[in-house]
Design a protein around this nucleic acid. Structure first.
Length: 834
RNA sequence: GCCGAAGUGGCGGAACGGCAGACGCGCCCGCCUCAAAAGCGGGUGGGGGUAGCCCCAUGUGGGUUCGAAUCCCACCUUCGGCACCA
């Protein structure tokens, strides 16, 4: 580059951004000559403005796409819009702008911001979940679920958000509050649509073990959420009734210690078995617990309460009559909604038994700890002066009839066998996971393609009548019912089955349904005969690298896995798992909080780009810290990064040329300082490559800084017009190209490089050039570094130790003492023990 | 309560059992300048010594090892997840 202009990102960046809009490098189709690489960043909700948190996210994705392309992969890097959802609808209610108008506006604006960050996508694959050509296939997937018996409607106590006026999935309730608006969620009995995700619970859990490229943290969260446990269902006949109470327990071995039963207040048998004397108390208790919020109900530290029903049941293994209570610490939604209480083995039951003076029987005695040092088993606890303890650890069965003397593990198996043989119960598996409630009483979503006919009941809309178009002329006022219910022309239809008058389903689908398959649509985005073709899905899937926020660890990532498994069962895709590798990046915070409009702590992308340029912003968000950790915004750091890019710019002033010509020169043609520079170049190639592969972008950037510092020193001494400097300049631009695409593209062009820098192959690490003739070795005496020596690189262990022992420092410390041992860690240090 | 992650200079952070603090920010000194900004050079964990150097130091206390920020045990703190799930 010959001119001496100043670095002016505002001048050069838009030029390259326009270039990338017409350049086809990142518009891809299947290519048999290259390995494919599908990289994906979670598609955004089109909220309007992007801030530095988004910039971090999309910069990482862009870096991966550009890097993998240079590595010779056929890279698919698509982008789209998770465009349905509540914020646009709430804004419509408030401001009177139609959600569709606002959403499209926001998409246009955000796309502009992607260009401004220098981020490249295959925009031919763009999808927006609110467009009929997309939600047609979301509805198609609903019909597939329905056909496979995985979509059903039932009346249930659903989570209802009073502010958003809609039901929520269990996954969208966080600590008893609406995940979106923070309002306390209440329970409402409503008829709702569900997806039978529980049918896939085992596979969703077991296949987590195949996801080696996922963070352990996310897998653990999903395991806990699915919550599989093994145990038994046991039937207790109710005395004087035909009914039996079925309980679920993970500890069938303790059945002899069951001294009472507890039903959830909502349990269907409560009313039937309650005795006349207890009727009033039971009714009061049931009514009181219904009034409680989930937050009150679920609090673990409040005192347990309950009332007896007056009824008794028979313990099937010992014939004992035990009382049946109701208590709100038992949840109707888990297991069978009823438990056998074993106060001698369960602390909750123990507390309850002590409070209401119910009998406590010890059925497990801890095995004596043999070695004093071994980890002691959970110790028995004694509360409130009780002479009988509660013990839940392993041990030996007592007071348990035929099980006496057995260790707990064995007795569990034995008891299940006994129950099954005598017809009192069976071994079962239980899950915490509930079915996915997918219907919403809101407007801005994909209509559920079902029709209610008085003659035929629930009738699916035939595939050839899709999409069921979301009407635009709608009154948005929320009233606990979908706004679609007020649109006569939408609601009134004919039954596809009998042709008679029928009403359309007016609920829309949870937006998580939209986002649970979009990565498949990217593979074949213009297909109008199906959601995607099997060939293209098989070519591109699975996603090789998925990047997004950890807030989706359960919701989106679990639902997507479920949908892919259903599609695999239908024979539509070959993969069992959609995302091979997952990276969850941290938030960028300001004033200690996530950037959000409501908190007023947003640093917009536009501010960054206008003040310093996109490259500065990109490098800054990569350098700010480990990308999987949260990082606090600070303006100074951005200035430092801008200074770095200015230094890079000046490094290329004068007659610097780039190109690959010097790459095959003989090592002996170079002077020692040339060789030092080339050594640094190749060490940097290795470091940057390794760091990108393991997502250590912050240290990759620092390696680039080190190289540029070394180049500046070299340039000060030898000038820029040597073959070594040219080689260094070439490699620096190539290595930096995925990080700072504009400045590297510009310098590459100005310095006479071939084509575009991003079309060049990634630099090759050359171990010979990286090798050093001399190595510096530290000498440790008794574990402390006391000296350093330089040795030829090929020194043997013996020679190295001899040289170390002969140095004056070591000699003075030896001082006639005996050498106990020596060892040599090649290239690192020599350890001497006196 | 259970599960998981993390605690390193003034700050963000490096260091995948081998020279703690790379790289950057900030600060200090100097050069350039009439001056400033920008830029450039040097310094920068704590303590001691004229100096060669020495001692201390990665949340706390133990342990394993020739050698520990890194591995193990216990504890403290912070953050995240789950939470009356039988």
């Amino acid at each position: 580059m010959e001119s001496n202009e100043k670095y002016n990102p505002q001048g050069i960046e838009p030029v390259w951004q326009r270039e990338w809009q017409v350049d086809r490098t990142y518009y891809v189709k299947p290519d048999p000559d290259k390995p494919k690489f599908y990289t994906l960043v979670m598609f955004p909700y089109p909220s309007g403005d992007l801030h530095m948190g988004h910039m971090r996210n999309y910069t990482i994705g862009d870096l991966i796409a550009r890097y993998r392309t240079m590595r010779g992969y056929n890279v698919m890097n698509p982008m789209g819009w998770d465009a349905f959802g509540l914020p646009a609808e709430n804004a419509a209610i408030k401001e009177g702008i139609h959600p569709a108008v606002r959403t499209i506006d926001n998409i246009v604006g955000m796309k502009e911001q992607f260009y401004k960050m220098g981020i490249v996508y295959d925009w031919d694959r763009e999808v927006a979940s609110c467009m009929p050509d997309y939600y047609k296939w979301t509805q198609w997937i609903f019909l597939l679920m329905h056909r496979r018996g995985l979509a059903y409607r039932k009346k249930a106590a659903a989570n209802w958000c009073p502010k958003d006026q809609t039901v929520l999935a269990n996954e969208q309730v966080v600590n008893g509050r609406c995940e979106r608006c923070g309002t306390e969620v209440i329970k409402k009995d409503l008829t709702q649509w569900f997806f039978r995700i529980t049918n896939y619970a085992d596979r969703l859990l077991d296949d987590l073990d195949t996801l080696d490229g996922w963070p352990e943290r996310v897998k653990t969260m999903q395991r806990n959420w699915i919550g599989r446990s093994f145990g038994a269902e046991v039937d207790f006949p109710v005395t004087g009734h035909d009914e039996t109470v079925r309980v679920y327990t993970t500890r069938p071995d303790t059945l002899y210690g069951a001294t009472f039963l507890v039903l959830a207040p909502e349990h269907p048998l409560v009313s039937e078995i309650t005795t006349p004397e207890q009727r009033a108390a039971v009714d009061d208790y049931v009514a009181a617990s219904r009034r409680e919020t989930e937050i009150e109900r679920m609090s673990t530290d409040r005192e347990k309460t309950g009332v007896p029903t007056g009824a008794y049941a028979t313990n099937p293994v010992n014939g004992e009559q035990i009382p049946i209570w109701i208590a709100d610490y038992v949840l109707v939604t888990y297991g069978t909604g009823a438990i056998m209480a074993v106060p001698g083995g369960d602390e909750r039951d123990y507390d309850f038994a002590l409070k209401y003076s119910l009998p406590i029987v010890t059925v497990v005695e801890p095995t004596e700890v043999v070695e004093p040092g071994t980890d002691p088993a959970v110790a028995p606890v004694y509360k409130h002066g009780s002479s009988v303890p509660c013990y839940s650890g392993p041990g030996v069965m007592v007071n348990s009839g035929r099980l006496n003397g057995m260790p707990t593990g064995e007795s569990k198996v034995a008891m299940i066998a006994l129950l099954e043989a005598e017809g009192h119960g069976k071994g079962t598996t239980n899950f915490r996971l509930r079915d996915w409630l997918i219907s919403r009483q809101r407007y801005w979503g994909a209509p559920i393609p079902m029709v209610h006919c008085e003659q035929c009941g629930e009738v699916p809309v035939p595939v050839d009548q899709l999409p069921v178009i979301l009407p635009t002329d709608v009154e948005f006022r929320p009233g606990g019912e979908s706004p679609l219910a007020g649109v006569e022309s939408f609601v009134n239809t004919t039954c596809p089955n009998c042709g008679g008058p029928a009403r359309r389903e007016t609920d829309t689908m949870d937006t998580f349904v939209d986002s649970s398959w979009y990565f498949l649509r990217y593979c074949d985005p213009h297909n109008d005969t199906g959601p995607f073709s099997r060939d293209l899905a098989d070519y591109w899937m699975a996603v090789d690298q998925y990047t997004g926020g950890v807030e989706h660890a359960i919701l989106h990532l679990l639902y997507s896995r479920f949908v892919v498994k259903v599609l695999a069962d239908e024979g539509m895709v070959s993969v069992q798992e959609p995302f091979k590798r997952l990276f969850t990046q941290g938030m960028i915070t300001k004033d200690g909080a996530k950037m959000s409009k409501s908190k007023g702590n947003v640093v917009p992308v536009d501010y960054m780009v206008e003040k310093y340029g996109a490259d500065t912003g990109r490098l800054f968000v990569l350098f700010i810290g480990p990308p999987d950790e949260d990082a606090e915004w600070n303006d100074r750091g951005a200035e430092g990064m801008f200074r770095f890019l200015n230094r890079i710019w000046r490094l290329f002033e004068g007659k610097v040329t780039v190109g690959m010509e010097g790459a095959d020169r003989d090592i002996s043609d170079y002077s020692p300082s040339d060789r030092d520079l080339l050594r640094k170049v190749h060490l940097t190639i290795k470091k940057v490559t390794d760091d990108i592969d393991r997502f250590h972008f912050n240290t990759a950037v620092s390696a680039l800084m080190e190289l540029s510092n070394a180049m500046q020193s070299y340039r000060d001494a030898h000038g820029p017009q040597t073959a070594a400097f040219s080689a260094a300049a070439t490699n620096l631009l190539l290595l930096m190209a995925p990080f700072a695409p504009h400045i590297t593209a510009e310098l590459w062009m100005r310095c006479g490089g071939d084509e575009y820098v991003h079309q060049q192959p990634w630099p090759q690490f050359n171990a010979d050039l990286a090798a050093s003739d001399v190595i510096t070795v530290a000498i440790q005496i008794n574990g402390k570094v006391r000296d350093r020596i330089e040795l030829p690189a090929d020194t043997s262990e013996e020679e190295a130790i001899q040289t170390a022992l002969s140095t004056p420092r070591v000699q003075s410390m030896l001082d006639g003492k005996e050498i106990r041992s020596t060892r040599y860690v090649p290239g690192r240090l020599i350890s001497i023990v006196l």
